[in-house]
Nucleic acid binder design. Structure first.
Lengths: 287, 287
DNA sequence: GCCCTGTAATACCCGGTAGGTATCACTGAG
DNA sequence: CTCAGTGATACCTACCGGGTATTACAGGGC
């Protein structure tokens, strides 16, 4: 009568995302009628109508929107529970659990910092094994939430630290990376305004939540593509200072005077309390 | 094969808390054998042993500890999803959802601030209805996590803000509240050391996670009991400055020079994004 | 006007499994 | 050695989650 089953949440989230019972059922690997029935039961048990059955498809009520968001969070929490338990169990050798941490890092981001952190931590007396999980921009939050990672390096303001515990590690300015032969590359410094509306160098667009923001720039999804497009003179990038590490010869870096500073944090789920994690954070804070 | 059901989590948490299949089954309103079987299935599905069956009761393996903590969080998240959806659905009148927020406040804590906040917010053009939910010390976190509350007033360092978004509202010093006839009450200021080891005034003990810390002082669980014990000359309290509001005539307040400042925050679950909540936070930040 | 298409809901059936009862197996206390 | 108390096993039943076939309904094209 009162607690939701994860099965029901899974079903509802699928329907709410597809806004179509048939497609949702297919995605769930089941037939449509039982799915309809399950959602009806869910609505009856909650005493709330979640979906507006329009003549042509389905739309969410306000209560449905709430359940979509809260339900996603709950599903993430349960899969995190399963994953972390499995991992903890694999290390169930006697004489102390052999801990292991999964550290999510944006590919090629904060590379030098990461290197120093891993070296310093490895020198600790009872260091756990660190598995580095490279990921795309903005993926760290999801990885931490559903348990695929235990701790992450995040960069404000690109990543949102909301809901996580974190420790500040490094603050750096940002630079513009330009094609070496472009006129702007000769400048000593630039402002954001200088690079934001250069007709022949439109800012590249990263996918955000699976979709690309509108704009004239090329669509990219990793730093190598970006580097190549810059070298070809097609775009310009605004990127933290540490990116100097991977400059090509055809690139020129120019400091930006008014770009917001980028702060790299080490972040982890607020409720976690493993010794290995505490050690890693302590090491990181002393860098 | 891969996602945990809420039922399984509920069962495991019950067993892990009771460390006894019989009592856990009773608490769950079921018989013991199916519970045993369910836990065995859970262990098989996770491929991990969660409980050490000693022939006199049960103890947790390290993986079991992980699942206990992560599972509690997941259960909280699912009950929060159900509760918040029900509340959002009750307000499903046409012409815009009639929003309602539950604000958790430690009974008698930050009373003046709360009063100002409620007044200021009520004056807002599209103010939602605010239900004030008084609670005990340190209960706010749980209320926010399982959806019984949407937003809370918390006092660092008494409350832990980990895992929540928050906004700072008020910083205040702390005072010692002494029996008026006690010699120390004549002092202009005191230090923590002055009040921490007065033989005839042992510090009172609050229950922490359901159990009392050891010590000589009396066990209390609300502010009225504390006030009375102070008036009787049995104990001394170290409390934020705003507590002057409820001083008795037999009490004397003396400022503490070295007590950590108490910062009152307004805090809410990091992922929430309701308009009503945003309005309340904005109002609070402008106080 | 008609039919045809695509949608969700209903009717009905079946099998897996969650849960109950009775019992067993083991171990420590007296 | 027995007995009390624990969790595990055996077996049965009933519910319900899921499948297939079908209905009900709303638009769009002709």
């Amino acid at each position: 009568m009162d607690t939701l089953e994860t099965r029901e949440l899974r079903y509802f989230v699928a329907v709410a995302e597809e806004l179509h019972f048939g497609r949702a059922a297919e995605r769930l690997g089941m037939a449509q009628p039982p799915l309809s029935r399950a959602i009806q039961q869910l609505e009856r048990r909650l005493g709330v109508s979640l979906l507006e059955r329009n003549r042509r498809g389905v739309s969410l009520t306000s209560a449905g929107e709430v359940l979509l968001h809260e339900g996603r969070a709950a599903l993430d929490a349960t899969t995190a529970a399963a994953r972390r338990t499995r991992r903890a169990g694999g290390a169930d050798s006697p004489g102390g659990p052999r801990n292991r941490l999964v550290l999510a890092v944006k590919a090629a981001g904060s590379h030098e910092l990461l290197h120093k952190l891993l070296d310093a931590y490895a020198a600790e007396p009872d260091a756990a094994e660190i598995e580095v999980l490279p990921c795309g921009i903005g993926e760290q939050e999801g990885l931490l939430r559903d348990g695929r990672a235990d701790v992450a390096l995040m960069q404000a303001p690109f990543n949102s630290l909301a809901g996580f515990d974190s420790e500040e590690l490094l603050t750096e300015g940002q630079i513009a990376i330009l094609p070496a032969r472009h006129p702007l590359a000769a400048r000593k410094t630039l402002s954001l305004a200088d690079v934001s509306d250069v007709p022949d160098l439109p800012l590249a667009r990263w996918p955000c939540h699976g979709t690309y923001p509108p704009g004239p720039g090329p669509e990219i999804h990793d730093q190598t593509q970006l580097a190549q497009l810059i070298a070809l003179g097609r775009t310009v990038a605004v990127i933290p200072d540490s990116a100097r590490a991977w400059l090509w010869t055809e690139h020129t870096a120019v400091p930006l005077t008014d770009a917001p500073p980028v702060v790299t944090h080490i972040a982890w789920p607020a409720h976690s309390h493993s010794l290995a994690l505490a050690g890693l954070v302590r090491t990181a804070a002393q860098l």
